[in-house]
Design a binder for these strands. Structure first.
Lengths: 231, 231
DNA sequence: CGCGGCTTTGATGTTCATCAAGTAAAGTGG
DNA sequence: CCACTTTACTTGATGAACATCAAAGCCGCG
C-alpha cells in the first residue's frame, strides 16, 4: 500500500458526478482537504472486520472483494465492487467497527475521506444526505439480492450465476480473465472448491464456456442464462 | 386491515425516542400530520414486492415477516421484525418499488408516514438524517448477518439458530409460541418443511426442547447454542 | 529449482430433497 | 355449531446432490 497524488481535487475526478457534484465550494473543500489517495497491491487487505471505522472509502480503480470470515477461518464473499462504488457504505453508519473485510483483487486505487468531513457535509447539504441514503440502500439490496438468488440454486446454477455476474456487471464482456480463484468462487456460492471446479469443467465439456487458465470465454451465453435460471 | 386512532400524536408514542425525539415542533407536526395508523390481521400482507413505495412504515405492535418470492412461487424469509422497527427501511430510499414483501404474523399495528414528510424533515434536521442512515445500515447488516450465519450451517445448526433467534431477539424467553409455521421456518433456513420438522423432532427426542403444538420450551439452552454453533 | 498454493479428477460416504401416506388442526360455508 | 375442506404437521423410505478424502499435475515466485 502506498499513498499517491494522482488527482489534484475532487472537482477533476471522473467519478465526481456519482455523489459529489451538487456540493458547494466550501463543501468540496471540506471533503477534498481530508482526502487521501491510496494504492493497494493485488491481495492486500484494505480493511479488516473488527477494525474501527474512521473514514469513507471510494473505489477509483481496480477491483475488490467484500467478505466475512467465519469462526473456522473460512471466508465468505458477499460481493465484488467496481470503480465508482463505495467500499464501506454498509458499515460506515451502523457502528464504529467494520462488519466485513475488503481486499484488493487487483491493483486498486481508493480515495479515503474522513468520516467527520462526510458528516459535516451531511449537516449542510440535505440533498447529499438523501443521495447517500440511496447509495447505502442500493448496495445493501444488491448483496441481499445475490444471496437470495444463490440460495434458490444448486451448484450448476450458482456457478453459472457467478460467471454471468462477472460478465454482465463487472467486465461487460463475454470474455474475461477471472479476477478470483476457483476457491473464491466457492466462497462466493457456499460450495467446495472441488465441486466448483467440477462444474466449470462440465460447462467446458458441454461447450458452454471455454477455459484457458484464468481466462473465461462464454460461448453459449443463452444456455448459461438458462442454467443460471433453472439450475 | 383497518384504520385506528389509538395515539393522538407522535409526542405521546412510547417509541418516540427511537427516532423522533430530537425533532422541533414544526418537524413533529410535519410527521404527525401525514401519519395514519393501521391495524392488520394475522396473515394480511402489508406490502408486496413490486408495489410503489409512497410511505414510511413503523411497527408499533405485533410481528411481521420480511420475505421475497422466487420465480417458482416459493417464499424466502429474510427476517422477522418486532415493534419499534421500521418495516421498509431498506427499500425506502433505494428505489420507487418495494424489493420484498411484508406480512403480519399476528395482529399488527403500524404507523404510516408519507415519504415526502420524511424527506422534508431530513432537509431541516441533519441529526435525523444521520440517525436514519444508522438505522438503515443496521437493519441491512442484520439481514446480511443472518444469511451469513445460516450459510455456514447444516440443518441442525440452522434450526437451532432460528429457535435461538426467536428466544433471544424476539421473545426474550426460553418459552414461546412459534410465530411461524414449520414451513416458514424452512423458508427462513432454505430447507424443506420435512427436514425442518424432522430436526425439531430430533431436538425433542434429545431432550433439548419440548414441543406442544405451537409452543416451544427450550430445556437445554447451552446445548442448543452448541448445536447452533457447530451444526 | 523447489516449495506452497492453486487446479483438477476420481472414489466414497453423508446430508438433504423428494415422494408417499397418514394424522392433526384450522378455516369455511350451510 | 357441525360437516367439510383445506392447510399444517409428522414419519419413513429412497435417491440425488454435494462434501470429504485422496492423489497428482500445474504454476508462480522467491
Amino acid at each position: 500500500m502506498k499513498i499517491t497524488t494522482e488527482i489534484e481535487s475532487c472537482n477533476t475526478c471522473v467519478y465526481k458526478k456519482l455523489l459529489f457534484d451538487k456540493l458547494s465550494d466550501v463543501e468540496h473543500k471540506t471533503i477534498n482537504d481530508t482526502r487521501i489517495e491510496y494504492l493497494f497491491n493485488k491481495g492486500e487487505v484494505l480493511r479488516k472486520e473488527g477494525q474501527k471505522i474512521q473514514s469513507f472509502m471510494y473505489l477509483r480503480k481496480g477491483l475488490v472483494k467484500i467478505y466475512k470470515t467465519d469462526k473456522y477461518g473460512k471466508d465468505h464473499i458477499l460481493g465484488i465492487s467496481r470503480p465508482g462504488e463505495f467500499i464501506n457504505l454498509l458499515s460506515v453508519f451502523s457502528g464504529t467497527l467494520y462488519n466485513y473485510s475488503v481486499a484488493a483483487l487487483e491493483e486498486t486505487q481508493v480515495c479515503e475521506i474522513k468520516l467527520s468531513s462526510m458528516k459535516s457535509v451531511i449537516k449542510t447539504n440535505h440533498q447529499f444526505a438523501l443521495r447517500l441514503l440511496n447509495k447505502i440502500s442500493k448496495m445493501s439490496e444488491e448483496i441481499i439480492d445475490i444471496q437470495f438468488e444463490l440460495n434458490q440454486k444448486q451448484v450448476r446454477g450458482r456457478v453459472a450465476y457467478v460467471l454471468l455476474l462477472l460478465a454482465d456487471r463487472i467486465f461487460n464482456s463475454h470474455e474475461y480473465k477471472m479476477p478470483i480463484t476457483r476457491r473464491e468462487v466457492g466462497e462466493m456460492i457456499s460450495m467446495t472448491t472441488e465441486n466448483t471446479i467440477r462444474t466449470l469443467s462440465e460447462f467446458r465439456k458441454d461447450g458452454i464456456i471455454e477455459i484457458t487458465g484464468k481466462s473465461i470465454h462464454i460461448r453459449d451465453y443463452q444456455r448459461l442464462v438458462t442454467v443460471s435460471r433453472n439450475g
